[in-house]
Design a protein around this nucleic acid. Structure first.
Lengths: 203, 203
DNA sequence: CAAATATACTGAATGGTGTTCAGTAAATCC
DNA sequence: GGATTTACTGAACACCATTCAGTATATTTG
């Protein structure tokens, strides 16, 4: 019967409505300053209704994080298209840094809360994994052709991602202030860092 | 007259009493779960009293952060003592990673909140700067002797710090899960990363 | 079709939060 | 010794996340 299907669909639409409003408000006002009440207000439902669709505020955040990782994955797919794996690696790195610079609040959201993939064994649709694999695959292709200094693919992924994440997260937390880098030169400085670093890991 | 001096001293003692309790509770229960009321309770004063010494909860955090940076600086000074700047660089890197692994809550506290040094022009006693300079000085000495691949000292500091921060912060936010690194091998894997990376930047 | 049930939603209530401020009591000053 | 400054209190304010008895609508059953 079509009724249960319609119900399912309506449930999905409601969840989307909530997450869309939540994402908008998280980005505009920050996670901490966005209350369930505010979200409920903005979609014209009572606060209790949100709890019929999401266990708590954290679960709402996880949903938004999943969407954010998907967004980053999309960026990778459109910006890192070179057939040459080394070139593609640079495209990935710059896409990552650009993403963080252009969506600082979103990037922050993706890394605020500890253990967002803590449902552990659960088959939590993990966009984070898919996004990381985009990088891992590229590194693997580079290494297969002996183009990188790494011997261990785990180390390769760890080090490259750490460098990218380190660059953008130190910037987002304003820790670059201690290096006296002026605001307007941040982007070129970070891009230079990506280029120099990637140059330093090709054989 | 000695009265105002005693008052000054007592004020300082009170501030220390508050920050000590705050640090303890931030580390035990986390920043978000620690309330001004809880802190007041633990030192047996009323909530209002805390506001006579600190403007708000954030200012309390900044104080704790300053102390944490001082603590990291101390770690650097005791663990990075080699005369050889390249050796010292490795000691610094490992000290940094160890510090984060051994004090995860503290490290988190140092990088949770956006713009902690946002009093800007104010001569906010900046332990963060002093700590970073420890690294910057070491890098400068290496570069002066032509031991590193870097040409620009700013890039050197940025890249090295980014790698260290990236490694430990991805770990703290449980983002290493996507690489399927087992819990017990995290420390050796991170140390290996530090060694490999530093090897890759010496000429 | 009507009664029974299931679903979707409400909004007040609970027990918290950061922060303020009138009031009080003690210490210091004149 | 009276006036004033200082240190502190704790109730009050405006929020917060979350829960849950109650209601109204939709669906199913007899």
């Amino acid at each position: 019967m079509g009724i249960s299907e319609r119900k399912e669909r309506e449930k999905g639409e409601m969840k989307k409505m909530i997450t869309t409003a939540a994402m908008k408000m998280f980005l505009e006002d920050g996670y901490a300053k966005t209350s369930i009440r505010n979200i409920a207000d903005s979609i014209e439902y009572s606060p209790g209704t949100i709890y019929l669709y999401y266990k708590d505020k954290d679960e709402l955040l996880y949903e938004v994080q999943a969407q954010a990782f998907l967004q980053l994955l999309e960026t990778f797919k459109t910006k890192a298209i070179s057939k040459n794996p080394i070139e593609r690696l640079e495209q990935l790195g710059k896409a990552y840094v650009s993403f963080a610079l252009e969506n600082p609040e979103l990037y922050d959201l993706m890394f605020i809360i500890r253990a967002p993939m803590n449902v552990d064994e659960d088959l939590h649709k993990d966009n984070g994994v898919a996004t990381f694999n985009c990088l891992a695959d590229c590194l693997e292709e580079c290494m297969k052709n002996g183009l990188l200094i790494f011997k261990d693919p785990v180390q390769a992924g760890l080090q490259v991602w750490s460098m990218m994440h380190g660059l953008v997260s130190l910037n987002l937390r304003c820790r670059l202030k201690v290096m006296a880098i002026e605001e307007e030169s941040i982007k070129p400085v970070l891009f230079k860092a990506v280029e120099e670093y990637l140059d330093s890991i090709v054989v």
